[in-house]
Design a protein around this nucleic acid. Sequence first.
DNA 1: TAGGTATTTAGACAAATATCTAAATAATAT
DNA 2: ATATTATTTAGATATTTGTCTAAATACCTA
Lengths: 86, 86
Amino acid sequence: MIVNKVFKALNDNTRREILNLLKQKDMTAGEIAEAFNITKPSISHHLDILHQAELVTSEKQGQFVIYSLNTTVLDDILSWMITLKK
Amino acid sequence: MIVNKVFKALNDNTRREILNLLKQKDMTAGEIAEAFNITKPSISHHLDILHQAELVTSEKQGQFVIYSLNTTVLDDILSWMITLKK
DNA sequence: TAGGTATTTAGACAAATATCTAAATAATAT
DNA sequence: ATATTATTTAGATATTTGTCTAAATACCTA
């Protein structure tokens, strides 16, 4: 169930901030890591969880991996919430 | 930060199901517990987390505690997501 | 007041999570 | 080829989380 993975992915401030960063522009894993006071392996792990939830996509370009925001999956959460509201 | 607590509260299937139950009608803690294959103390704990996130309100009526759904706080999550989308 | 019902609190425990360091993999450049 | 850079994987550890049982609290009724 993707809703499960999305809620899990969103339940962490660092991951939510990563999404906010990617809103501005696509970034490499290294660039993302530099924005936080956390080691690269930890950021890599966060990116993996975001990827599993399909909140980001990734593309390898040479030695870099470029991450992009994918908000389409948020629609599932949105409709889940709207259903609850009405 | 309430957004934090809301995301935390929503990151559990049992708690999301509790909210869906309360969508139909207000319920006592006992009634909610009966709907799950989980002990009453565990449900009580879930209700506490939902309450901290202000996703439910509670009112004591005699020996019963009646829980109600409160979706207003979902607006914060909604606008957080909409900001991310645009 | 005593006994019963509804709910929460306390304390324990296993599983999940966020983080780290060290090592592995992959691509580039000299 | 070798060294350098970018990223991920592996393994360890402390913290958080979901669950349980047992006990405490609160209310009701006879």
